[in-house]
């Protein structure tokens, strides 16, 4: 019996979920990979090339260059969140989540499989957007390790957030409420299009409550070498955010909230 439940069997289970998630992303590429690239291209054209010329410089650099990291981060956040939410809720809605729930896989493997799938999508879309950005602002890379680590940590954190949304969602409307009313305003006010140092006193302090400010700035440091916040604070906040969300997700899965009767 022990052969059926072992580290190897769990590894195969994890790989299976990941393969299934990647297959899904590729199968519906017109929904998963192309729209973010088109949207970001429009952002670069309108805010970068057309309006950006009039804005001039932001943080001692051309506005076009300044917005590149923020727009990549915006893509990573929405895609990692949206991937898990739609995939997990879809499985719940179609009842095929039961395939996993009756399997011997422990909750953390199921969670790891879904999160990894979301990270893969976020990375692929992030790279595609970066390639588009390079056509407008050229290639820049200040520190590849900071860039990669922030990209992965941010996508993990938001994938975990998307998982919680997927667990609680009862209908399709429920998976668009958080992205529309919480995520999007937080991202837009998180320093994607401006430096938080431009904000007047109290608003600068308030903006520092928004974790996305740290993600965008740390990523901007990785690409451009500038940031409004200290790098170590950004890492601490992103990791802390991730750990708390991971604990919540695991607890929800273990208790079977919204999944087991």
């Amino acid at each position: 019996m022990s052969e059926k439940v072992s580290a190897k069997s769990f590894w195969i289970g994890y790989q299976t979920i990941l393969i299934k998630e990647i297959t899904r992303i590729v199968r519906i590429w017109a929904q998963t990979l192309i729209p973010p690239v088109i949207t970001m291209t429009l952002y670069f054209v309108i805010f970068g090339a057309i309006i950006g010329r009039r804005v001039g410089e932001m943080g001692d650099m051309p506005y076009m260059e300044f917005i590149v990291p923020g727009l990549i981060m915006l893509t990573v956040i929405t895609n990692s969140y949206g991937n898990v939410t739609s995939s997990f809720f879809g499985a719940k809605f179609g009842k095929h989540i039961e395939e996993l729930l009756i399997s011997p896989l422990p909750p953390w493997i199921i969670l790891a499989g879904y999160i990894s799938g979301a990270v893969v999508r976020a990375l692929v879309v992030g790279v595609l957007v970066w390639l588009v950005a390079s056509m407008f602002a050229g290639f820049q890379m200040h520190n590849i390790w900071v860039t990669l680590s922030i990209l992965i940590l941010t996508s993990v954190a938001f994938a975990l957030g998307g998982f919680i949304n997927g667990v609680y969602a009862q209908k399709f409307d429920d998976i668009s409420i958080i992205p529309t009313f919480v995520l999007q305003p937080m991202t837009y006010l998180g320093g994607v299009f401006f430096s938080v140092s431009l904000l007047p006193g109290i608003w600068q302090q308030i903006s520092l409550v928004n974790p996305i400010v740290y993600m965008v700035n740390a990523f901007r440091y990785g690409i451009l070498g500038v940031s409004d916040v200290p790098l170590w604070v950004a890492y601490a906040i992103i990791c802390g955010f991730g750990v708390v969300l991971f604990a919540i997700c695991l607890s929800l899965l273990q208790r079977g909230v919204g999944l087991r009767t």
């Binding site: 069997s9 195969i12 289970g13 299976t16 009756i102």
Partner: peptide, 29 residues
Amino acid sequence: LVPQEVNFNQFEKPFDIIVNQGGYYGVPR
């Protein structure tokens, strides 16, 4: 378990459904 209601992903192929289910139980691909 063979459930009362159909609970596989109807947008997947039977072969993939079975292979994936095997994976969840640690059966090599």
